[in-house]
Design a protein around this nucleic acid. Sequence first.
DNA 1: AATGAATGAGCATTCATTCAT
DNA 2: AATGAATGAATGCTCATTCAT
Lengths: 221, 221, 221, 221
Amino acid sequence: MNQPRTKRGEQTKAKLLAAAEGVFAEQGYQAASIARITERASVAQGTFYLYFESKLDLFEQLVDDLNRRVRKAMSDGAARGSNRAEAEREGFREFFAFTAEHPALYRVVREAEFVSPGAMRAHYERIVEGYREGLERARAAGEIGDVDPEVAAWALMGVGEMIGMRYVLWPTGDDGPYGTGATPVPDDVFDEMVAFVQRALGTAPSELTAAAPAARTQEDS
Amino acid sequence: MNQPRTKRGEQTKAKLLAAAEGVFAEQGYQAASIARITERASVAQGTFYLYFESKLDLFEQLVDDLNRRVRKAMSDGAARGSNRAEAEREGFREFFAFTAEHPALYRVVREAEFVSPGAMRAHYERIVEGYREGLERARAAGEIGDVDPEVAAWALMGVGEMIGMRYVLWPTGDDGPYGTGATPVPDDVFDEMVAFVQRALGTAPSELTAAAPAARTQEDS
Amino acid sequence: MNQPRTKRGEQTKAKLLAAAEGVFAEQGYQAASIARITERASVAQGTFYLYFESKLDLFEQLVDDLNRRVRKAMSDGAARGSNRAEAEREGFREFFAFTAEHPALYRVVREAEFVSPGAMRAHYERIVEGYREGLERARAAGEIGDVDPEVAAWALMGVGEMIGMRYVLWPTGDDGPYGTGATPVPDDVFDEMVAFVQRALGTAPSELTAAAPAARTQEDS
Amino acid sequence: MNQPRTKRGEQTKAKLLAAAEGVFAEQGYQAASIARITERASVAQGTFYLYFESKLDLFEQLVDDLNRRVRKAMSDGAARGSNRAEAEREGFREFFAFTAEHPALYRVVREAEFVSPGAMRAHYERIVEGYREGLERARAAGEIGDVDPEVAAWALMGVGEMIGMRYVLWPTGDDGPYGTGATPVPDDVFDEMVAFVQRALGTAPSELTAAAPAARTQEDS
DNA sequence: AATGAATGAGCATTCATTCAT
DNA sequence: AATGAATGAATGCTCATTCAT
């Protein structure tokens, strides 16, 4: 009563997941109804329960799926950077791009504490885990300052989430009741934020960051 | 049809607000029912509508009220500091203390995007406004580096929110379905976080921050 | 617990009755709330129960009062006529004038079957009684044809009510959700209707009716 | 989300309409609860909303349906008559028969001004339209006097409604709180009323009407 | 006489889920 | 695999009425 056994079933489940992502992005988890999701997926209501045990099950599968994908995007981005500073920069770039493309993830996770606390914590912990490992490696390599990787990772998570909310999701929230807004973070904001983070981490300067409009503090005095 | 006109009415409305804060903290906005709130306040269900137009109206009044109080606490904390670094430190301390005492604020705001987007944005914007003004003054006084106050303020908001969620609200979330957890942020985490922020802002060192276990990076090497 | 004992009480009850008539006319009995009525009367809700036992009691007092007044107006009108035809004409004229000034009566009575069947029947029966007595006298005097006074009286009631609804209450029903419309019946419609009734009753022709655009049938052939 | 797609759904909707007609007839629109209607139809409350958007929607569908049927019955009755007088007589006969069988129509329409003014006006206007067309044809054919078809049609509507209320619905209103009374109009009343109408219209005498106990007025003297 | 706070039963409506076809 | 009809518990909200002051 869960995994599709035929190619047709496969497609139906995929249609349902895609429809759910859209509806969740527009209305949130609580306001999204199975009726609305199945309607958007063009299947009958009963069909839903062929592939999901409950609304909650759908939610958790969706968060899990999106979480996997955002982490993949972020690590792909980071891998593109040829030094630590670039890796940080590109990781954030992908994070915001993903947020813009999949507002559902961001929005739904914020409702998740009262829906599935486990799914919510797992989501954040997995992303933080990625940050932390990166920070640990960077610190071992002397590319960043003497920061506590765990605390710093949570702080980075917070910066990314808040900047994403403010600059990616708010501006054009005009389609649907709450919009499914999707704009890139303006370049200057992005640069400022990256500089903020790199000062916080003490990331070794590179050509890129040297060019950024960052504060020059202790060294200046 | 809204404001209490007698002392008794005043008390009843206060009881309702207090009960609502508790229920929201435990169950979130969506799951909280008027029945549960009035029951906890020991008044009849109809009484609720003497003072609130709807569940949403209650929500907005509550968020507004808590927002006012958290900002007061933060600015009182900052005022206690005798220099910029101490002001930052004490502001965050009060923020976390408030979060520990009023988990409802934190939790409910995260559901708010789909409940009252306006209330949610107003909440963040007001806090950020306070941060930004502080940063502008500090920059003019040469107490911090050359940061963009707006972007930095949103970043600080993000750091505070995420650390608050992780270290204040998660640990003991065991009473009620999702807990009303309330622990102080562990000292070492708090110190690390403050150091993180101060490096990001380029806050001029003081005895306090000099003593903190912060990263000493470029200079050290 | 019912009749006002002081001059002030007298005024309060009168304010309540007037307010009720207005609210009933606009919203009907069912949708009218005590809260709305007391608000319009500028008294507290509790005050209502000083003068009325219940919403139903108010309703019955109001219908009774209006019924008394409409019958008075109609018989005064009829008395003004110097012959049978004029009496009929003037009675109807007053009936429509009253309907225009007191739409509440008309509107509320139509809801009354499910509110207070007794009040509703009494209202109609009393008016019909007036018609019937008039018809009996007229028949005895040879002023009208050989009609059954009871059946004819009910038919007259029906004609008056329907023409009143259609031509007095519908046209300008634009203030408030359903309007409190009040226009005089257009002269030509009024004349047609009176002629209709007088042919039905076989009212002896007079100068007035002779001038009306009525059908002249059997006699003509 | 509205029209049944299967035979079973068809039956369920029909059961709901029938139950609603019964409950409306007994208690009126306002007092009728969805719970009562679904209970009588032996379906769950939620089922109601599969076929009706709201209580109001049900009301309008029901009035529309009954209106269609009463007009069909009336025109079938009129068609049975072999001359104008008979057509009038048979039309009224069917109208009263319908009222006796479907007291809901009559009763509910009287509450309708405050429920759905549009539905109420449409109901009357459609019936009046039928009368008017009949009168226009009859006048062109010289079968009735020189009456204004519009005003006369409204007057006929009023006569029919009031006589129907008085003689069909009042007598045996004893089952249920207000009864669902249903008696034929007594023959003598019916004859009197038809004669009243025919004198008013100046309907050309026929064998039928000649036999009726109608007033013979001007001619007699 | 008047107030207005408080009550609590009652109602329309929603929605996740089940089931017969 | 898919459908869509059916369920019924749950919820926000209204309102006539009562009561303490």
